[in-house]
Simulated assay, not measured.
Amino acid sequence: MTLDLNIMIAILAMAAATVFTRISGLVLIRHVEMDERRRAAIEAIPPAVVMAVIAPTAFATGWAETLACAVTAIVARRLPMLASVVVGVATVALLRAVGL
């Protein structure tokens, strides 16, 4: 297997863009006054990201995935993101196991 230079440049550019956006977010948030409304908006980001990732799968596949997406959406309002993902994966596995 050979390594293509264009692919390597693309991977490094994507890595740099990811690191830049994460670091800039941490730096910029220090200069923002956090009132309750802004804090609530920032805390809503992780569940929104989870739903953006799993929603296409939920609507493009079967009932097990759609129901697991609904369960994950409900759980994501109360649990941390990692726990919500675990609940969603467990739900879809259970529903597939029972034949739904």
Rank of each mutant, 00 (worst) to 15 (best):
A58G: 15
I45Q: 11
I23F: 09
I23T: 09
S24W: 09
F20C: 08
I54Y: 13
L28G: 01
E36P: 00
I54E: 10
T61Q: 10
V50Q: 11
V49R: 03
T61K: 09
E33P: 00
R38E: 05
H31I: 01
V49E: 03
R22H: 05
A41K: 07
A17D: 06
D35F: 01
A55P: 00
T61M: 05
L26G: 06
A17K: 08
V53R: 02
A48V: 10
V32Q: 03
R22K: 12
V19A: 15
L26A: 05
L28M: 08
A41F: 12
W63M: 11
V53E: 08
V53P: 00
T61Y: 11
M51N: 07
I42A: 12
E43W: 11
L26T: 01
I54V: 14
T18G: 14
F20W: 13
R30W: 04
R30A: 09
A55Q: 06
V19T: 14
I42L: 12
P47K: 15
A16R: 12
A60L: 10
R37I: 04
A58P: 00
H31K: 03
I29S: 09
A52D: 03
L28C: 00
F59A: 07
I45C: 11
T21V: 13
M51A: 15
V49W: 10
M51W: 14
P47E: 15
T21Q: 11
L28Y: 08
A55I: 14
A55H: 12
I29K: 03
L28S: 02
P56H: 12
R39A: 04
R38M: 04
E36I: 03
I23H: 02
E33L: 04
I45M: 14
L26K: 02
T57P: 00
A17Q: 10
T57Y: 15
A60G: 02
A40G: 02
A40F: 05
L28D: 03
G62D: 14
A64G: 01
E33N: 06
R22L: 07
A55L: 15
T61I: 02
P46S: 13
G62V: 05
A60S: 15
E36W: 10
R22C: 09
T21L: 09
P56D: 11
T18D: 13
A64H: 13
T21M: 13
G62I: 10
M34K: 01
M34V: 07
I45D: 07
R37K: 05
E33D: 05
